[in-house]
Amino acid sequence: MQDFGAAFGSAFTLIATADSELMEIIALSLRVTLFAVLVACLIGFPLGATLAIARFPGRGVLVVLTSALMGLPPVVVGLAVYLLLSNAGPLGVLRLLYSPTAMIIAQTVLVTPIVAALTRQFIEDLYGEYRELLESMGAGRGATIATLLWDARYSLVTAALAGVGRALAEVGAVMIVGGNINHVTRVMTTSIALETSRGELALALGLGIILVLMSILVNAGLIGLKASAERRAYA
């Protein structure tokens, strides 16, 4: 028990003094996650919007697929991206394995279905409301999607934040494709796993506390956003 108390003490010291190793790990975590979510939004927003308003053969299958992929196990994604990027894999020549880029790719694969599926749901609901209006105005496909994406902006930020939450907390995929290399590919979750198994509880706890705080922050942001949207009747 005393060990735990000491570990907590050191953890808070690490946070309070902005320990450089801790900060480096947090910075890489944020970089990888935010970049992955950005790419996931660039793909997921238009994809979700298209699935919401377009009618084409195979649409139903795609809708089910994106929803199903929301629950993709991170280790499986890690394995798939590993196979893709390993020396023997089709993208092996790029030599991306065990780099932050590989981690971004893996997390993008993980987050894109979440963003796309939530976007489809939000846009579909909004389209139900706007459809006749936009059609009577003669809005084409492009103008319709642009209008819906902008008017669903609060919901879309919600989708993006859901992606951030998922990517930040995920450990399996980045562990496999990043390799948890010190100063190169060590992020919060992989560090916690490693430090705990080594019995170095201080850094693990410090990172754990930061991770929980970030998760609280993301959720507070979601709640604040929702309140702000409702105040303007933009929800």
Partner: peptide
């Protein structure tokens, strides 16, 4: 032009509603 019983307004300001309609037109 068509106006519904229950107005369908964009999630924007009044001015932006009018501006966006003109842009669609």
């Amino acid at each position: 032009a068509l106006v519904f019983q229950k107005p369908v307004l964009f999630r924007r300001t009044v001015r932006a509603n009018l501006d966006h309609a003109l842009s669609i037109y």
